[in-house]
């Protein structure tokens, strides 16, 4: 069975709300427990906002894994990239004055967190949360 994918644009902060609502709905319909659906949707909110504000816009890809046993989200942007990833994941660190707990916090809300970024190359963050 081919996995279903949904694409959500992340151009303005308004798009972040649409994307996180889609993630919450997808997680609930896949049978995630209430708190787990909120964890994943909140991670999506943080990462989506990061793509809009820090990455100057991008998109989110939502993919169901193993018939809904897990959900994978990919956030891509063509922005300036994150020069120091380790530092960006430290709680309280913010380069824009608004993202202090965003990346590090989002990482704690998911089961797997991958980040690829380089100066001038944009950023791609992929996260997975399983239903348990």
């Amino acid at each position: 069975m081919p996995s279903e994918r949904e694409f959500w644009p992340l151009k303005a902060t308004r798009d972040v709300g649409d994307a996180r609502r889609a993630v919450h709905a997808a997680a609930r319909s896949a049978g995630f427990r209430s708190a787990d659906a909120v964890r994943l949707a909140t991670a999506a909110s943080e990462l989506g906002r990061n793509a809009v504000i820090h990455g100057k816009g991008g998109r989110m890809t939502l993919e169901r894994l193993d018939e809904g046993a897990g959900i994978r989200l990919e956030f891509r942007d063509e922005g300036p990239g994150i020069p120091d990833i380790e530092q960006a994941l430290v709680d309280g660190f913010s380069s824009t004055g608004s993202m202090g707990f965003g990346l590090g916090g989002a990482r704690r809300l998911v089961h797997s967190f991958q980040i690829e970024s380089g100066a001038g190359e944009g950023t791609r963050i992929t996260v997975v949360r399983w239903r348990r």
């Binding site: 964890r39 943080e46 707990f101 809300l109």
Partner: peptide, 14 residues
């Protein structure tokens, strides 16, 4: 505040 929101915020460090 709902339970799911409360646990998530704590995990976020907020």
């Amino acid at each position: 505040m709902r339970p799911a929101v409360a646990v998530t915020l704590v995990e976020l460090g907020m």
